[in-house]
Amino acid sequence: MKAERSHSRLSLRALPSLVLLMLCCGQGFAQVGSSTIEVIPIADRVPLAREVHSQHEHAADHNMQFDDRGMVMNSNSDVLPQDCESISEDIEFTVRAGTDYALNAAGRTFGFDVHDYRVPPCSRVTIHFYNDDQVRHQWMLHGLPRYLYPQGMFHLEANGGQHVMGSFIVPSDDATYLVHCDITQHMEKGMKAQLVVGAGSGDLWSVPGVSADFNRPTEKVPRGTWLLMTAMGMLAGAMLITMKR
């Protein structure tokens, strides 16, 4: 969904305009061009499911705890993924969430104190999730094996001022997983992070402190571009004409 699914489509779509840019503008545009080309490898770990569940149906099949503090969905601290023989390591993260942590993300309103989590393959990851705001926040991970985690999802949700915790065991392959808060606009405004297992499979787009936004305002052509282009064209024409045989 959302950010991840469309990465390859988007970068392909940008190609023709890139080619055009390089053709027309040459090195005068190197600066603008480079910000467009800078291709961040696509982490395509998020599988595209074929089945479509209604929100109401699937909520009922998840393994979840639901109380005053919030909810924990699909926590698993003992069943191993098929490709792991044992738990390689126990890793714990204390994560704080709220508007205070948007400070490390320009143009954002919400955030986590950590946006980049690195763990070894087959490790057991325990998240202690603290919400410092007075409204709900989530730490939702997508792309885990569906035979262990319904919908491939591990989810913590804490009410304002509350703390919840849960664990999951990551598979053995190097991969990058999306972590976010799915309350409308929270991911877009900064609550986006990545969990990198082993060497990972590249960075995701628009992770605060890690990677750039795909739609950047700097991609607008700077003022005076057309004037410069025309001048260069005329200069080239004049040079061509005055060239000796």
Partner: peptide, 20 residues
């Protein structure tokens, strides 16, 4: 109204869930 979980119908969908 205060809800829980995903804001869309499901992970593959871009359509808001019915409370939103």
């Amino acid at each position: 109204p205060k809800s829980f979980g995903m804001a869309t119908e499901n992970f593959e969908s871009n359509v808001a869930m019915d409370l939103l």
